[in-house]
Amino acid sequence: MAVSETSTPSALAGQNLLGRFFRKEVVLFIILVVGVLLLSTQTDKFLTVDNILNQGRLLTEVMLLALPMTYIIITGGIDLSVGSILGLTAITLGYTWQNLGLPLEVAIVVAIAIATLAGFVNGLFIVRLGVPPLIMTLATLALYRGLAEGISQARSVRGYPEWFFELGQRNLLGIPTQLWIAVISVIIAGIVLSRTTFGRSLYAIGNNELGARFSGIPVNRYKLLIYTFSGFMAGIAGWIFVSRVSTTRSDMGTGLELDVVAAVVLGGTSIFGGSGTIVGTVIGAVLIQLLKNGLALSGVKGDATIVVIGIVLIGSILINNFIQRRSGQTT
């Protein structure tokens, strides 16, 4: 009622068009394209098929973790323990295989099961006892890493059989094997989020948890599910990680949670919950990886490329805030 008084239909349509054009994903995509073009003028090693595919290989772990993280942040939560779960998976895999003498296939299954359990424990405390997600996963960030360090006593495991590296170091149909897993996961996660009742419910939970509860959404079950899913994906990512680098160490994945959160937030998912897309997350993750790589190839020293990530992260949110405030003025 009040809306019709403040703006004429034609003005509203104009705003809509503008708003649609300046959607977060579009803005990000433009940044991505401009960034890639700029970097490709700096070095001719950047925009080659080999390099791009290799970057996809390096990107897989963050991408896999970013999918459940998108779900979780949409519901207004966060999972800081994914890097530690990845480390725990790696250690469990190496330890059960080398020290307990299990067949490697079984060790992989056990490790992923442990990772899933770790995510389930996060979810259980958050849902049943009402521990805030930030605190719960901060505690398990320390706890799971501590278990990995305690079990391994900081000893690394090497000497995996040749077939184990198929996943992390070889190609399937000309594309890095693990990239297939990433692509398939992205497609499934995207469809589930945008096309299923479960996916839409996550937005409802993020916007108004109490309202979601009252409208009959099984909030607790869904939250438990996404934290468990996060653990499971950290398990898969851990397996891929070990296969890619050929060795197991207890500090694997340290700080990875921040890369993952950065990718998700850069992709336009609001840290307050209620909005975000898988497409955005994918662009965010790709943007970070390509910027890192492009800068490294242009001669910027190793980890120094993270400066740009920090600036892009804050900058993109500022731009988004600015656009939202402008398009929000008329409503």
Binding site: L258, I271, A304, I306, V308, I309, G310, I314
Partner: peptide, 19 residues
């Protein structure tokens, strides 16, 4: 901007500059 995002960005900027 939420503090967790700002300080996450700041952390990257500082760490990178140091390197």
């Amino acid at each position: 901007i939420p503090s967790i995002v700002v300080t996450l960005g700041m952390s990257s900027i500082l760490k990178g500059s140091l390197i």
